[in-house]
Write a protein that binds this DNA or RNA. Sequence first.
DNA 1: CAAGAATCCTGTCAGC
DNA 2: TGCTGACAGGATTCTT
Length: 279
Amino acid sequence: MPELPEVETVMRGLRARLEGRVIARVRLGRPDLRWPFPPGLGQMLTGARVTGFRRRAKYILMRLDRGESVLLHLGMSGRMLIAPDDEGVPVLHEHLSLHTDDGWRVGFVDPRRFGSVDLVATDAEDSHRLLAGLGPEPLDDMFDAAVLSEMLRGKRTPIKAALLDQRNVAGLGNIYVCEALFRARVSPQRGADSVAGARAARLVPAIKMVLTEAIAAGGSSLRDYVQPGGELGYFQHAWQVYGREGELCATCPGPPRCVGIHRIVQSARSTFYCPRLQR
DNA sequence: CAAGAATCCTGTCAGC
DNA sequence: TGCTGACAGGATTCTT
């Protein structure tokens, strides 16, 4: 599920429900997700007041009034359940539940368990091993064509793989890389170091725009998070290439000349693109 | 070192 | 309908 826009949407939903609240009770459904829960997680959370939230790449940081932050990653299948704390029966794969002082339950649901939870000192969040090596935030003003070109210099891996590498840019995933490359008319197979000049100048705003639009779409369906089992209202209606193999692309001055959207496999992930438009 | 493969899990869906 | 295999929005760790 979660790439940057989805994580941003989830983070805003958590902020709206949890900021300023005290966590009255914690339930740990199992001792680990991808990694073991940190020692003392339950104790650290119980009785703590939530002071704020922050997103970094695909990570959510929930700050407590105890100088510690909870670091969350949703992995492939993670989502947050936000529901009135009535009967309190955990749903399937609800591995961590927070019960607030004002009668709400916030659950971390993750069937595949690729997600993770850790604790980090609030004043040293960015030095956590999972955050330390991340590249720039794509929506940050400092992320521009010059920064991107510098990141890609000398890299002979395909641009698709380079954009998925969180050390280069932080927060992009398979879907939005496909969409951004389509919008920028850059072939996913092009060598990363050949994406410079006009191509980098197109790619940066394409990345920013697709992420911004997706966040706006996610934000409009935040209410979905209040429903147990509710799914995030996705940006999927706006996908122009992802999952659209065989369809004519929206941009070719076709249909006669559009060869259709192709699917290829790059580093074991599906890539969708228009071979005629993207060069 | 950079780049590719294997790996952790469960759910879903297409095809037989 | 029931079974099987492919595949899924991620990212670390292990090999080449």
